[in-house]
């Protein structure tokens, strides 16, 4: 039983947490792809930027003497989301819209978004250096521990408060997004544009408005994911640059343009990472007397240092075996 809890704490919880972050990022990538038809490489840096916006607001609030029993980041999150959404709109207006107006190929926009990635990253490093920042300098991170009232169980189930918040927020966002896309006028318009942009235009749907809404949602989700990631680990200028490829992997595995696919892909990649570096030998421990002694003590599928490559391998295999992703087709 202790082994099962160890598995829960070291494989299931991290998989759920990182999967939530990947899912939030991948939804943004997939929405942008569905509407604007390009792979937005700067999304990871939009997340980092969101994290830093939250951080600045949090220390600003702490500076004017606001103190709370919970991390102040939760309080300022809506403001940070709004700021990041506006920034995403501004980036589109300045860098992508002029290229779209010229009718360039999607991959040109991909290259442009790499330029944007570098600009955001350069600016963040310019102002924040390369060090790490922590939301929990004032208030320590709350760790929940649940002890099961079972004989012989010594190990508690443990997770942190931000992890709980993150998973709950992700679930809430997914539900909200579902209702937005299937019930609201503009949500349906977004699906229409993703399905057939030309027809949407001749139906009288204002494409510029849809593009704006897309950036607001994608930017807001990026801020949410970036802040959550920063709350779970720490805030670094290259925070999201390292997870942009897993996020792309999640979006592609889920079928680019498919919102639900992106969410499923996010959790799939998240769990694939955490399960493949988990030492499965732990689960065999109760039977250790029956096991042959040639069995190695570490039965992780890949060594921990290759954790990041798991996502890339899944990405490459998906692209080769089933490039349309699990949920076929490119539409919202």
């Amino acid at each position: 039983m202790n082994e099962a809890i160890f598995f829960l704490n070291n494989a299931v919880v991290p998989g759920l947490v990182i999967g939530s972050i990947y899912a939030l990022g991948a939804v943004g990538i997939t929405l942008i792809y569905g509407i604007l038809r390009f792979a937005h490489f700067a999304h990871g840096d939009l997340m980092t930027m969101g994290g830093f916006v939250s951080y600045l607001l949090a220390i600003g609030l702490a500076g004017i003497g606001v103190s709370t029993t919970f991390p102040v980041a939760y309080l300022i999150l809506p403001v940070a989301i709004a700021i990041t959404a506006v920034a995403a709109l501004a980036i589109d207006r300045m860098f992508y819209a002029p290229l779209r107006a010229r009718g360039v190929k999607p991959v040109t926009l991909l290259v442009a978004s790499i330029g944007v990635t570098m600009m955001i990253q350069g600016l963040i490093r310019l102002f924040f250096g390369t060090g790490t920042y922590n939301f929990f300098e004032a208030t320590p991170k709350v760790i929940h521990q649940i002890r099961l009232p079972i004989e012989g169980v010594t190990r508690p189930i443990s997770f942190t408060q931000p992890q709980v918040v993150m998973v709950l927020v992700t679930v809430a966002v997914v539900i909200a997004l579902h209702f937005f896309l299937t019930r609201s006028r503009f949500g349906k318009a977004m699906r229409a544009v993703s399905d057939n942009a030309d027809l949407a235009q001749v139906s009288g749907i204002n494409l510029r408005m849809v593009v704006r809404i897309t950036w607001i949602i994608a930017g807001g989700l990026a801020c949410l994911a970036g802040t959550m990631l920063a709350l779970d680990v720490t805030l670094k200028p290259d925070l999201a640059f390292n997870i942009i490829l897993p996020i792309f992997a999640a979006a592609i595995v889920g079928g680019v343009g498919q919102v639900y696919g992106a969410i499923a892909g996010g959790y799939l990649i998240g769990f694939a990472e955490s399960l493949s570096v988990f030492n499965w030998a732990v689960l065999l421990r109760p039977f250790r007397d029956q096991l042959p002694d040639w069995l190695p003590t570490n039965l992780a599928i890949v060594p921990t240092e290759y954790k990041l490559t798991v996502a890339f391998v899944i990405l490459v295999i998906t692209l080769l075996v089933r490039p349309t992703g699990i949920f076929r087709g490119a539409s919202l």
């Binding site: 349906k188 699906r191 399905d195 057939n196 030309d198 027809l199 539409s331």
Partner: peptide
């Protein structure tokens, strides 16, 4: 339009 005149996944 003549072609692609519906939203196929809706």
């Amino acid at each position: 339009p003549q072609e692609k005149n519906i939203f196929p996944t809706m």
